[in-house]
């Protein structure tokens, strides 16, 4: 199966008065049609910036995509998103790649009806007339589970609850049945019960429309529920990439291992009530420095001298499973087969 999106060595930097932020330092991954790829990492790891860089949505005065390729499959060829002008990218945004953002309150225009906010995407990319877009939007509203769709078309964002607003955002994202939907922490700002509904909705739409979903989150619980594959990011790089089961059962990168250990489990503590919750020591890397070493080195239990000298590349450790680490945790010794 060929991927519909191939990202290679993406580099993004932000130039500010306080210095240069090396936000993305050589990110490489694939996205396959109809799959759900979870992108996991802490704040600052570069999950959102990676995705936004692909379609030029990062603020461009301070930000700059400085290297790499993002090949989007198109008909009988590829389109390198990073080489397109802003005008050309506009066709990709919304039409080929849809976005769901985190905070539905601030992400919707308060002075425009939700119906119009959905329909304007359709008129732009699908060439529909106002009337056609309106009826398609109403159908879509019903599809995403908004009751009374015809009346609600003319309602404003502040008339809806958080969960409903997120459904509107989802409708906006899928309005033109894009190939890829990028969901940037869509459930983080919602109540737990509503979270589950939103996750189900996205899954249902995905089955219906066959799109690939890149689900950005820092919540490993959500990942377990919906992902086919997982990308773990740290310090602006991909540190591990695997199928979801493989990641949970057989993690290879020290960071992933630390993350999974940090999830408190009721069945582990036994009767020892004094056992502490595990956490990863140390603080995230300073992105003002160019990355010439493994970003996780200062916090790693298995660190050795090579880690401080070179940025580890992604090494294939199994089928559909790579990790960016010089240490072989399974064998308990540094790898000697990488140049």
């Amino acid at each position: 199966m060929k991927p519909i999106l191939q990202v290679r060595d993406l580099i993004t930097r932000f130039y500010s008065v306080d210095g240069v932020v090396h936000a993305i330092n050589g990110v490489t991954f694939d996205l396959y049609a109809s799959e759900t790829l979870a992108v996991v990492g802490e704040s600052g790891s570069g999950k959102s910036v990676t995705m936004m860089s692909l379609v030029g949505l990062i603020p461009m005065p301070p930000g700059k995509v400085e290297g790499g390729q993002a090949l989007l499959e198109k008909g009988d060829g590829h389109l390198d998103l990073l080489s397109l002008s802003d005008d050309q990218l506009r066709h990709v945004r919304g039409g080929q790649i849809g976005f769901i953002f985190q905070d539905p309150i601030s992400s919707l225009n308060p002075t425009m009806t939700i119906g119009q906010q959905i329909a304007e995407s359709m008129t732009e990319h699908l060439g529909l007339s106002q009337a056609e877009a309106r009826s398609s939007t109403i159908k879509l509203l019903r599809n995403v589970g908004i009751p009374d769709a015809e009346k609600r078309y003319n309602a404003y964002p502040h008339h809806f609850s958080g969960g409903m607003r997120q459904r509107v955002m989802i409708a906006i994202a899928v309005a033109c049945e894009p190939k890829i939907v990028i969901a940037d922490e869509p459930t983080t700002a919602l109540d737990v019960t509503v979270q589950a509904q939103i996750v189900d909705l996205v899954k249902r739409l995905q089955d219906q429309m066959g799109m690939a979903v890149a689900w950005i989150t820092h919540d490993l619980g959500v990942v377990a529920g919906i992902a086919d594959r997982v990308l773990v990011m740290y310090g602006g790089t991909v540190v591990e990439s695997a199928r979801v089961d493989d990641l949970y059962e057989d993690p290879h990168h020290p960071y992933t291992i630390g993350l999974l250990k940090a999830i408190p489990r009721l069945d582990e503590s036994g009767n020892d009530e004094t056992e502490k919750l595990t956490s990863i020591e140390g603080t995230p890397p300073d992105l003002y420095q160019e990355l010439t070493l493994c970003p996780f080195a200062p916090r790693c239990d298995y660190v050795f001298d090579r880690c401080w000298q070179q940025l580890p590349p992604l090494i294939q450790v199994d089928d559909q499973h790579s990790a960016a680490c010089f240490y072989d945790v399974k064998r308990g010794e540094p790898r000697d087969d990488i140049e």
């Binding site: 802490e42 704040s43 790891s45 940090a262 956490s279 603080t283 995230p284």
Partner: peptide
């Protein structure tokens, strides 16, 4: 799960 904080000097 650690929360990210900027490196504090």
């Amino acid at each position: 799960m650690t929360t990210a904080a900027p490196p504090v000097d």
